[in-house]
Design a protein around this nucleic acid. Sequence first.
DNA 1: GCGATCAATAAATCCGACTTTTTGCCCCGT
DNA 2: ACGGGGCAAAAAGTCGGATTTATTGATCGC
Lengths: 233, 233
Amino acid sequence: MSTAGRGLHGHVLDTLGPAITAGEYPPGSVLRTDELAQRFDVSRSVMREAVRVLESMHLVESRRRVGVTVRPKAEWNVYDPQVIRWRLAGADRPRQLRSLTVLRSAIEPVAAGLAARHATAEQCAELTECALGMVAHSRGHQLHGYLVHDMAFHRVILSASGNEMFARLGDLVAEVLAGRTHHDVMFEDPDPAAVTLHVQVAEAVREGDAERAEQLTREITVGALHELDILAP
Amino acid sequence: MSTAGRGLHGHVLDTLGPAITAGEYPPGSVLRTDELAQRFDVSRSVMREAVRVLESMHLVESRRRVGVTVRPKAEWNVYDPQVIRWRLAGADRPRQLRSLTVLRSAIEPVAAGLAARHATAEQCAELTECALGMVAHSRGHQLHGYLVHDMAFHRVILSASGNEMFARLGDLVAEVLAGRTHHDVMFEDPDPAAVTLHVQVAEAVREGDAERAEQLTREITVGALHELDILAP
DNA sequence: GCGATCAATAAATCCGACTTTTTGCCCCGT
DNA sequence: ACGGGGCAAAAAGTCGGATTTATTGATCGC
């Protein structure tokens, strides 16, 4: 599901990363590698590797004679999948989920429009298959089956857009959908209107109707925004 | 302007990162840390730190007994600012510039709409100041002055949206704008219509007219897409 | 003849000692 | 009393040897 704590330094990251992103160490805090190495019971080299990774994520800055200082939240690489996972697992999960949903609402309609232009026959087939799967699992508390097809649907759309930047958001959207299903509302069956919209998007993409695909997807994302009470009345 | 090659491992990254993102080592290639350490004349520890950073960017995967293998392009963290800079400096700069411009076209209109709702008085002032600066430098080959205000304008919009994910795209958009000015067309003065649109966006945000701000910004990004011949007729 | 198990090996991984640089503090001079 | 220059400590940075592990291939058994 998530990244395995590969190696010793991976295990350090799995506990230090969430701690930093959760705000346990406020911006400007100084951490000494020696102390951390002792605390995690690893050598200083291992700790240095972990610090380098944190540094590449702009979570911390390492300076001589000063130590490892935590950088302000505004400078973090919030698009790093690892950082996103850490924040989703932490305390400000709701805030993160809202940010990501707004991002979805901006990206996915455009991606759907592009997909209508560039999707291959195989991708169109996958898309309709996913939509049908969603319909099949839309009633009778089959939330897990519905979720699987929903995630696959959006992943295909993003991938079929032909834009690599969009394609790489597949994991992110999947994480948002999974989070919404598991932790928030949605104890009931999904909104029938949303299911219909997905089927129609698959149609529009198959017919190459970019304008319609974009508008329909926009309606889907607007629904997602409403679920989180983001849209003002 | 770009990241300083902090430390020895930073220097290694500054030459190895561009080489990998440029495709000099095709996916599946194996690199041995010992060999690389010799080639760069550094210790294995330093090379290991560099490899860890590359690994956190999903550019490579380090496995025992097999070496450091280059991952396929589709798995790279293309949102990492460092990776973006490396790719912009490399051979597929045009492709990267197109991808980023499409991303802009999806994000910025939504960000402008949000900015109209959430912008503070100070941010509105900055925005109008930037727009005026663009007007002032729009004629007589003052490309540099125009660019500075253009970058600042879009940065303020993204920041004022109140969405941290959008805000972090400021550097990215600045890079795109700078790239367009320096390496591509635009030997003449900027399009007067685009200048007017920026002024009108500032107005709309100041007046809190989200719908208008979004539509006007969409016109700006459509213009940017046309410049790169991305939009089909 | 084919498959599974085990040993040899190649490469990453881990460790402790040494080096370099920065910064804070103290002393001296004005 | 105030300011500059130098000294010392503290922390990150660097290095090469020892260790672990996974792959490969060869041998033994079926």
